[in-house]
Amino acid sequence: MAGAGIEDPGQQVDLSVDIAGVRFPNPVMPASGTYEVDEIHDNFFSPSELGAVINKTIFLHPRPGNPPPRIWETPCGMLNAIGIPCDGAEAFIRDRLPILRRLGPPVVVSIAGETMDEWIELSELIESTGMADLLELNLSCPNLSEGIPWSTEEKTLERVVSTVVGRVKLPVVAKLSPVVTDIADMARTAEASGAAALSMINTYKGMAIDIKKKRPALGNITGGLSGPAIRPLAVWAVYSAYETVKIPIIGMGGVDGPTAAIEFLLAGASAVAVGMYNFIDPFAMKRTIEGIRTYLAEEGYSSVREIIGLGHG
C-alpha cells in the first residue's frame, strides 16, 4: 500500500491487454457460470474493476438445468453438473445484458446452441443488440444431455465456428473442451475456422460416488471437474495451444489468485478467467488483479503484455 506522497510503482504498470481487437483494461475476468453481477457482488468490489464481464452461458430457449445434487466437492476442486439453467435469450437481452453493458468493461456474451440453427439464430440475435464486444461459443459444456460437446470433434467444431463466424461481425471466442486427444489440434481447427480468440479450458468430465447412498454423487451422474485440481492440465493446454496458434488465449482452470494467473500468462494466455474460486473467496478476482500488478512492478515490467508467453523462452 502506498503511503502519502510515496509513489506506488505498481500504479505505473499497464495492465491492459488486447483480445481480438477489444481492449481489456486488465487481464482478469470471471469464467462463465461462476460470477453474477448483482447487488450482493457489487458490495464486495465493483465488477467495473474487472478486465471484462461475462454472463453464464445462455441458450435460445429457457432450460431448467439438471436435477440435484448438482455439485460435489473433490480434493482441490469440485464437480458440477448444473446443466446450464437459463431463462432464454429474450429474458437475458431484456434483463441482464443492459446491466453488463452499463458497467464499463468489455462484455463477453457466452452462448450455446442445441442445434446448428440455434447457434446461428442466437449469434445473430446477440449481435443485433449492439451490447456485446465478444461472442464466446461454449462448445464444451460436459453436462448436456444433447450429446458430446461440440468441441470434441474437429469436424463439428469447424462447422459451428465457421458458420457463426460467417454470420456475425462480432469477434468470436471459441471455448474449448480439454476432453480431447490433443487440444492444440482443436485450437488450430478453431483458428482456421475463423475464431478470433480461444477460451480454454472448460471442465474435465468426471464423477464421484456417494458412499453413504452407494450411488453417483451427482444427479446427472457425471460432472465437470474444476478448481486448482485441474490447473496443471489447464496450463499445459494453454502452453501447447500457444505454440500452435496466433490468436489470443483466455486461460482458465484453477486460478485462485495472482500466482496461478501469472503462470497462465507466462504459458501464453493474454487474459485469465477465475471460475470456482469466486465461490471460495469473493475477492479472488480483485486480489488477482492487484497481485499481477505488484508482480510486474517488482519484476520491472511496465506492461503485462511483456510477459504473455514469456514462459516459452
Binding site: 457460470g33 453474477e36 438445468g65 448438482r70 448444473i82 470456482m276
Partner: peptide, 17 residues
Amino acid sequence: EGNMGCGMGDCHGCAVK
C-alpha cells in the same frame, strides 16, 4: 438444504424443484 458452493447465487448448485 442443498449442496452449496457459494451461498450467493453464483454456482446454481443448491437447486430445489
